[in-house]
């Protein structure tokens, strides 16, 4: 049994007629990138908010944030995705679910569900990183901020968060990478991102190796680009004379 390699397959016209198979790959890549970036914005915003809440005095708010984290950390991403995509539109009150199903085209429905799902899922992880960053700061920093007359929100804004975020750039980098990798899960609801395009190409061309090698290579490239970018961020935000100790 010998495999017939055919790298030219990418340049031949795709079954859809309006594009080449290379075009499929690139459109998948584009969806993956768009999806991951928009989910990352949600994850950062929500995760930072929750991370701050986990460190504020008062059991009520920090307990709320802790519950949030436990829920999103202890259910598989795939199950969460299916719940966002299949369950939520059915059970949303006030006809919101029906509007979601009727007013949005299927591709948008898939994209929105995937984006929200990845965003919330990752926010729970971002929350834990932000919390550990804040807790890693010397306790006196908060006191110093308060002693100068800052309110608690001002102390977070000017003293604690700028330093905490610098400390957690490396773990956030790995969460950022994860969001790209996790986005592949969204192929299961039919969203035509990179991995799904790869599978579709296999179905149409019977050239699985070329397709999978190309998809894998594209994920590797994303990985390298993100790491380079984040290393740049890390260098940009480095504090002179600060070695990360206490």
């Amino acid at each position: 049994m010998s495999y017939q390699w055919n790298w030219g397959i990418f340049l031949s016209p795709a079954a859809s007629g309006d594009s080449t198979y290379l075009g499929w790959m690139l459109s998948g890549l584009q969806t993956t990138i768009l999806l991951s970036l928009s989910a990352w914005v949600i994850a950062l915003a929500l995760g930072s908010l929750m991370g701050v809440l986990r460190t504020v005095p008062g059991k009520w708010l920090s307990g709320l944030a802790a519950t949030y984290v436990e829920i999103f950390r202890n259910i598989p991403l795939l199950v969460q995705l299916f719940i966002w995509y299949f369950v939520l539109p059915e059970v949303l009150p006030f006809g919101l679910g029906d509007r979601f199903k009727q007013d949005l085209d299927p591709v948008t429905q898939q994209f929105v569900s995937a984006m929200v799902c990845l965003g919330f899922f990752t926010s729970a992880r971002v929350c834990e990183q932000v919390r550990s960053g804040i807790n890693a700061l010397p306790r006196g920093q908060k006191n110093a901020g308060l002693a100068l007359g800052f309110t608690l929100p001002q102390t977070y804004r000017h003293v604690l968060l700028p330093m905490a975020f610098r400390l957690v750039v490396p773990p956030l980098t790995s969460e950022f990478l994860n969001i790209f990798k996790n986005s592949a899960v969204c192929s299961t609801i039919g969203l035509l991102e990179l991995a799904a395009q790869g599978r579709q190409l296999v179905d149409y061309t019977a050239q699985p190796y070329e397709s999978f090698i190309a998809v894998t290579a594209l994920y590797l490239i994303i990985n390298v680009v993100v790491m380079t970018l984040m290393r740049h961020v890390e260098n940009k935000t480095r504090v002179p004379g600060y070695l990360g100790g206490k």
Binding site: M1, K181, A184, S187, A195, P208, F212, T216, Y219, L220
Partner: peptide, 21 residues
């Protein structure tokens, strides 16, 4: 580094392709 850079979904697809053969 290779395995950590690739989505698990992709790894599984690879294995369902290669291992049976």
């Amino acid at each position: 580094n290779l395995f950590r850079a690739i989505p698990l979904v992709m790894v599984l697809l690879w294995f369902f392709l290669i291992v049976p053969q």
